[in-house]
Design a protein around this nucleic acid. Sequence first.
DNA 1: AAATAATTTTAGATTAGTCTAAAAATATTT
DNA 2: AAATATTTTTAGACTAATCTAAAATTATTT
Lengths: 218, 218
Amino acid sequence: MITLTEENYIKAIYHLASNGEKTVNTNAIAAVMQTKASSVTDMIKKLSEKSYVDYKKYQGATLTDDGKRVAVNIIRKHRLWEVFLVEKLNFSWDEVHEVAEHLEHIKSDKLIDELDALLEFPSHDPHGDPIPDKEGNFKHIEKIMLAKAEAGSTYKCVGVDDTSSKFLKYLDSNSIALGTIITIKHKEPYDNSVKIAFENTEIVVSQNVAKNIYLKKV
Amino acid sequence: MITLTEENYIKAIYHLASNGEKTVNTNAIAAVMQTKASSVTDMIKKLSEKSYVDYKKYQGATLTDDGKRVAVNIIRKHRLWEVFLVEKLNFSWDEVHEVAEHLEHIKSDKLIDELDALLEFPSHDPHGDPIPDKEGNFKHIEKIMLAKAEAGSTYKCVGVDDTSSKFLKYLDSNSIALGTIITIKHKEPYDNSVKIAFENTEIVVSQNVAKNIYLKKV
DNA sequence: AAATAATTTTAGATTAGTCTAAAAATATTT
DNA sequence: AAATATTTTTAGACTAATCTAAAATTATTT
């Protein structure tokens, strides 16, 4: 049996490992889990005993294949529920994350498989993130940060990194959504802001924003 | 903040109070919660401090208005999720209870209101139990136990008491469902079994079964 | 109304997850 | 390479929910 807390730690380790190094350090986990390093050490030991992570003292943690399987399954559930909330329950993309954080822990294979079918096997969630299939395979989409896009080129918006309500509402208020076709007009070296054009509009976005939008060349 | 465990105790007390006396004793709660009387005492004290139950030592517990409000809200969520599982995810009525036990604890008003709308504001769950509205009002259906129905009369099946998978599968295998029109052919005084007729069939059901089926005169 | 039985509560211990404060190990600076 | 800073771990304590065993109360029987 795996507890709710264990699942959340595994998920945190998975996310930390996927955007960066493969071995995850204690403080980083503590930051994500909003807890103290000492608590993380305790939990890592427990997860290590249960074979969800490999752990050597002072050397950080990495997920085992078993741990990865658990993480991907939770992510599958989280993203399917997000699609459900948007498609069937009229949630907007900035409202789904928190509720999905709870729904993702419900354990029932039939529930998830039928939900998947009801939604017609969606490949991406409302933020553009890929949804793993039953076996845990995802289609990796090649995408680049807006911050790294080249001036003069045109792209399609295919995802966001920050899924906080605040950021998504900012995008809404600027009419940027998944699928929006964006041309890079100018990259300002001084503050790394970027001038972009789409649908008769031209706006300048900060570096912070530019790092949280993913594009694909068109 | 109310914990998962507290919610489950409140629900248990509500159900125990609604089929019988208004004051619920410690051992009865322990039986429902599959725990020991001493644990129940501890929890009742805690719920009493939080004003969800009235409690005097050795005198059992009763829900306060606040406690009832919590209980009815959980029941609303439970029954809406059951309808969702049957109507949208192809669950059968014997599969829904366990999953709904978990889904009922997800806290989001928007989630439940939108779910209610998606299901077109159902009045009853898959077992015939009424679904409270947002304000906690349910329409009380007048119904009688099959065991108390009178010989010679005709009724419609409107509910079941036991929602265990075992019992519901028994009903399925005998083609008894909500809405089935049943005529009482004979009540056997020896063992309180009942001979019933419906749709070209005649079967005898035991007293145990007869006590778990609810009928309404037609 | 005693005696006995059943129920309920208390006292003290246990587990999961957390914390603080101090110690140990590793990394960085000088 | 020694000193300092940072990170991680340990030790011991705390809370929520549970348990066992014993004590207290209430209910039932004789």
